[in-house]
Amino acid sequence: MQTKGLGGEKEACPASPEAFAWLALYLGELAQDGHRPAPDEPVWWTLRGPTRPLTYTALRAVLNRLNARIGANITLHDLRHTLCLRLIEDPGITLVDAQQVMRHRRITTTSTYLRPRIDEVITKVHEHYTRPKPPPRPLTGWTYDPDDLADVFGNR
């Protein structure tokens, strides 16, 4: 999927297979109403009233109607926040991957979503201390010079 970046140029935007399925259904619904967005037009359009690009204000109105119907208070930022938390919790996604998806300029912004669970931390630290340690390998081929040891530690 492509989105427009800060400079207005198109950028790749990762999305789930389900997102593409929903997008296809949405575009089909738009086409039934006689509108198919051109490549240089926005993807999201209003479905109520005259067809026009979906603005932030219009999407907030959609969420407000939904919130009134279900008795919730969901915002666009809530959806974004949920996405970042789910990405971070996936062990197959790195922090840098999540940063790219979220379009954060600094990794420190993305790292604020890191929420270690105390039970997981305790388990990992326990595994660290109880993991069998390999025996030390003997060093072969050289020895300390007794004069060097005497210089460092004094004569004994």
Score class of each variant (00 low, 15 high):
Met1Lys: 06
Thr3Tyr: 07
Thr3Glu: 10
Gly5Cys: 04
Gly5Trp: 05
Leu6Arg: 15
Gly7Thr: 12
Gly7Leu: 10
Gly7Trp: 08
Gly8Glu: 05
Glu9Val: 09
Cys13Asp: 07
Cys13Glu: 07
Cys13Thr: 15
Cys13Gly: 00
Pro14Ile: 05
Glu18Ala: 15
Ala21Tyr: 12
Ala21Ile: 13
Leu23Ser: 04
Ala24Trp: 09
Ala24Ser: 13
Leu25Gly: 13
Tyr26Asn: 01
Gly28Met: 06
Leu30Cys: 08
Leu30Ser: 05
Leu30Thr: 03
Ala31Leu: 04
Ala31Val: 02
Gln32Cys: 09
Gln32Ala: 12
Gln32Trp: 05
Asp33Leu: 15
Gly34Trp: 07
Arg36Cys: 09
Pro39Lys: 08
Pro39Ala: 08
Glu41Thr: 01
Val43Tyr: 10
Val43Met: 12
Trp45Asn: 09
Trp45Pro: 06
Trp45Ile: 04
Leu47Met: 15
Arg48Thr: 12
Arg48Leu: 14
Arg48Met: 09
Gly49Tyr: 11
Pro50Asn: 11
Pro50Met: 08
Arg52Val: 14
Pro53Trp: 10
Thr55Ile: 07
Thr55Asn: 06
Tyr56Ser: 11
Thr57Asn: 12
Thr57Glu: 14
Ala58Arg: 08
Leu59Met: 15
Arg60Met: 07
Val62Asp: 08
Val62Glu: 08
Val62Asn: 06
Val62Met: 06
Val62Ala: 06
Leu63Gly: 01
Asn64His: 10
Asn64Arg: 14
Ala68Asn: 09
Ala68Gln: 09
Ala68Met: 07
Arg69Phe: 02
Arg69Asp: 07
Ile70Pro: 01
His77Ala: 04
His77Ile: 03
His77Ser: 02
His77Asp: 03
Asp78Thr: 10
Asp78Met: 10
Leu79Met: 12
Leu79His: 02
Arg80Gln: 00
Arg80Cys: 01
Thr82Glu: 13
Cys84His: 00
Cys84Asn: 06
Cys84Arg: 02
Leu85Ser: 15
Leu85Tyr: 03
Leu85Asn: 10
Leu87Gln: 00
Ile88Trp: 01
Glu89Tyr: 00
Glu89Lys: 12
Asp90Tyr: 00
Pro91Phe: 06
Thr94Trp: 02
Thr94Gly: 04
Val96Leu: 11
Asp97Cys: 02
Ala98Trp: 07
Ala98Asp: 07
Ala98Pro: 03
Gln100Pro: 00
Met102Ala: 13
Arg103Gln: 12
His104Ile: 02
Arg105Ile: 05
Ile107His: 04
Thr108Ala: 11
Thr109Leu: 01
Thr112Met: 14
Leu114Tyr: 01
Arg115Cys: 11
Arg115Asn: 15
Val121Phe: 02
Ile122Lys: 14
Ile122Ser: 06
His126Thr: 11
His126Ala: 12
His128Ser: 11
Tyr129Thr: 06
Arg131Phe: 09
Pro132Trp: 07
Pro132Lys: 10
Lys133Leu: 13
Lys133Arg: 15
Pro134Ile: 00
Pro135Arg: 07
Pro136Ala: 11
Arg137Met: 10
Arg137Ile: 13
Pro138Arg: 13
Pro138Met: 08
Pro138Gln: 09
Trp142Phe: 12
Thr143Arg: 14
Tyr144Ile: 07
Pro146Trp: 04
Leu149Gly: 13
Ala150Glu: 15
Asp151Tyr: 11
Asp151Ile: 08
Val152His: 09
Val152Asp: 05
Val152Leu: 15
Gly154Ser: 05
Asn155Leu: 13
Asn155Arg: 15
Arg156Ser: 06
